[in-house]
Simulated assay, not measured.
Amino acid sequence: MIVVGLTGSIGMGKSTTAAMFAGAGAAVYDADAAVHDLYRSEGAPVIEAAFPGTVVAGVVDRKALGARVIGKPDEMKRLETIVHPLVHARETAFLETAKAAGARIAVLDIPLLFETGGEARVHASVVVTASAEVQRSRVLARPGMSEDTFAAILAKQMPDAQKRRRAHFLVDTGHGKAHARRTVAAILRALAALG
């Protein structure tokens, strides 16, 4: 089974691209979805113990947690030491299930693939990209997003140009969904040829 790491900075269209891989038959693991689920399950009590007052009715209040960690590197690191092992365990279980099901290609949708050394766990990396203007307009259109929050998120992410240089494949979502879908199909053909 070929394992692909899919990544991209905020607002680049990574989730949409992951859905295109899934629609084309690849097994797809969504790290963000895993975090959301962990915030409603086994991660909640551990996060509450580390950051009291951030869990309401057994579910992590993302806004309250964000206020405690965004822009505070030490607190963010503390949160990551809780969340990353839990997410990694789910990723491992996903890969075992995909392999047992006979999947030829498994895609790991990981926002901070390069930042966390995740490329060591994959055979190839795909970076989803778009122009800075497209990224900015997409992100600032999100509910509750501010310039400061956007800047804080970007500061934590490797610059897009650096990600593009490290990628095996690029999907430019700035040219529309049809273009991105054709690119995904071409990547899957190239990967299948390797397998």
Rank of each mutant, 00 (worst) to 15 (best):
V3D: 02
V4S: 03
G5R: 00
I10D: 00
K14R: 08
K14I: 06
S15G: 10
T16F: 07
T17Y: 04
A19W: 02
F21P: 00
F21Q: 01
G23T: 07
A24P: 01
A27T: 02
V28L: 08
D30Y: 09
A31R: 00
D32F: 05
R40A: 13
R40H: 13
E42R: 12
P45M: 09
P45L: 10
P45Y: 13
E48S: 04
E48H: 06
A49N: 05
V56Y: 10
A57G: 08
V59A: 13
V60D: 00
K63L: 11
L65K: 01
G66E: 04
P73V: 08
R78I: 04
T81C: 12
V87I: 13
V87F: 04
V87R: 01
H88E: 10
E91C: 12
T97L: 12
K99P: 02
A101C: 09
V107F: 03
L112K: 02
F114A: 02
G117N: 12
G117V: 07
G117Y: 13
H123W: 12
H123I: 09
A124T: 08
V126F: 04
A130Q: 02
V134P: 00
P143Q: 14
G144P: 05
D148A: 15
T149W: 10
F150N: 02
F150L: 13
K156P: 02
D160M: 15
A161R: 11
A161N: 07
G176A: 11
R181A: 15
R181W: 10
A185I: 09
A186L: 10
A190W: 08
L191C: 06
A192D: 12
A192K: 07
G195W: 09
G195S: 10
